[in-house]
Simulated scan of single mutants.
Amino acid sequence: MTGVPVHLRVNGSSATITVEPRMTLADALREELRLTGTHLGCEHGVCGACTVIVDGLAVRACLMLGVQAEGREVITVEGLGDVAHLGPLQRAFRKHHALQCGFCTAGILTTAHALLMEEPNAGEDRIREVISGNLCRCTGYLPIIAAIIEARDAYREMQREAAQ
């Protein structure tokens, strides 16, 4: 097969990748852009480990083809902050010890980021509902939920600043 060029924005930067038509977005991010924070678990869209944000929506990158990302804005866990400047969710996860093995963490962070960008006042029940599609076998979810609740204030502030 012949590769197809795909032009997209990833974590705020323009990128062009060449992918086989059947390559998933998860594989394209990992293999072509070396963004290995996007994890592959079940590869059936069930576990949520591969969740990224595409045009503001949390999507399973294992279910989306790389060619479908043409012209889209993609945010991976690497786009939420870096070691020197952690994002609000990352800081809250660290504070609340909301990760153990870390395999699910990237997917949960991107899922929660998409939620709080859309609904910065999301209540605990809504948070539980949204992250219910992300499987974590280590934490029991309580520290994850506490971290997301704590991060809401920062997202409310970001929304206020954006409105001004």
Rank of each mutant, 00 (worst) to 15 (best):
L115G: 14
G45R: 09
Q159I: 00
C42W: 13
G48N: 03
I131D: 06
R160Y: 08
A69C: 11
T16Q: 05
I131G: 09
A84S: 06
V59E: 00
G3W: 08
I145Y: 03
I145M: 08
A106I: 07
M117E: 12
T36D: 06
C138F: 11
G140E: 13
T111V: 06
Q159K: 15
Q68K: 11
M1T: 14
R72P: 02
L115T: 14
I149M: 15
A58R: 01
A162R: 14
T24F: 05
F93W: 01
V10Q: 01
N11V: 11
I144D: 08
E161M: 15
S132N: 15
Q100M: 05
G102S: 04
V130I: 15
E124G: 05
L116G: 10
S13T: 13
D27Y: 14
N121L: 12
R128I: 13
T105C: 00
Y141N: 15
T38L: 00
G3N: 12
M117Y: 02
C101M: 03
F103W: 03
N134Y: 03
E119G: 09
T2R: 07
E118P: 03
A26V: 07
I144G: 12
F103K: 03
G41A: 09
N121R: 12
L109C: 12
L25F: 04
G87P: 02
H85I: 05
E73Q: 14
T51H: 00
L116Y: 07
T24L: 06
L63W: 06
C47E: 09
A151H: 04
L80G: 01
Q159T: 11
V59N: 00
G48W: 01
C50W: 11
I144C: 11
E150V: 01
A122K: 10
L115M: 14
V74H: 01
R94M: 04
C138W: 10
H7S: 13
V130S: 10
D82I: 05
H39N: 10
G79I: 06
E32S: 12
T38C: 01
V83S: 10
R160H: 14
N121C: 08
R72Q: 11
A147G: 05
H113D: 13
C42Y: 13
H85D: 10
R22E: 11
C50M: 05
D125G: 08
L57A: 15
V83Q: 07
V83K: 09
I131P: 04
L63S: 09
T110R: 00
M23P: 00
Q68Y: 03
L89M: 09
G87M: 01
R72H: 11
G66T: 04
V77K: 01
F103V: 07
L80N: 01
A61I: 12
G3P: 06
I108N: 07
A112W: 01
V46C: 14
E32I: 00
M23L: 08
N11M: 12
